[in-house]
Design a protein around this nucleic acid. Structure first.
Lengths: 117, 117
DNA sequence: TTAACACATGTTCATCTGTTCATATGAATT
DNA sequence: AATTCATATGAACAGATGAACATGTGTTAA
């Protein structure tokens, strides 16, 4: 009735699992990685990022372009900013946002390749 | 002064927005793209994907490796499967899962590069 | 056939998330 | 200074989400 499997004649699963576990990145890193992707995981934010693909836009422009409220755009930009996906500069009353670095561009591009098939 | 709003000699904001809008991918595509990233946006799923990076593992192995319940692993694998990020083959009572294609590998790698800085 | 095993699936529940509404900040204009 | 414009911020609510538990399905072994 007991299912003890103490005896292992050859290399069993446990050893294999341990070797796999040893090459896994730390959970903390994987957590951060997931947090990053989570930011991409919203259609509103993806649309915002795409609108900034080759342009620098202010909040109001994005809101008009994507037909959403200023408040919502601002909230989402804050998330994108915290994730270091966008940066901004001030010009008078306006804040112009743009993509922060090339990673954003490449990550989205990779995703598109997977989607378009 | 140059304060004309009705007839501006240069490109107005509205025209600029329209030209940007014309090169935006369809919302449907961007929605799918966000759905894809949403799948990556969970540390459990990322850990699962990473465990499959260079190995083929069955559900029980993953559960043991990541110290989570079989049910939870199964649920997440289903999500990964629906997103075409993993595939599986049956061997007796066990289902061996592996990454579906290279995109998965590259997307995660891109993400890691962004995180590690 | 029956039991044991490896997974899948359904449901509930607590938590997280995005949007809206209202309001605040802060620069430019009058 | 007061007003307007551009944006940020906070609270609150609806919908989404992931984990846990129980149960169902299909395979293998006895």
């Amino acid at each position: 009735m007991e299912n003890h499997k103490e005896e292992s004649p050859v290399l069993t699963g446990r050893e294999k699992l341990q070797s796999i576990a040893s090459v896994q990145p730390p959970d903390e890193v994987l957590y951060e990685l997931a947090e990053l992707f989570k930011v991409f995981g919203d259609s509103t934010r993806v649309r915002i990022l795409y609108s900034l693909f080759e342009n620098e836009l202010c909040v109001g422009d994005i809101a008009e372009l994507l037909n959403m409220s200023q408040s919502s755009v601002s909230h989402q930009l804050r998330i994108l900013k915290d994730a270091k996906l966008v940066k901004f500069r001030r010009d008078g009353k306006s804040f112009f946002y743009s993509l922060d670095d090339d990673h954003v561009y490449h990550i989205i591009k990779m995703g598109m390749e997977h989607v378009e098939e």
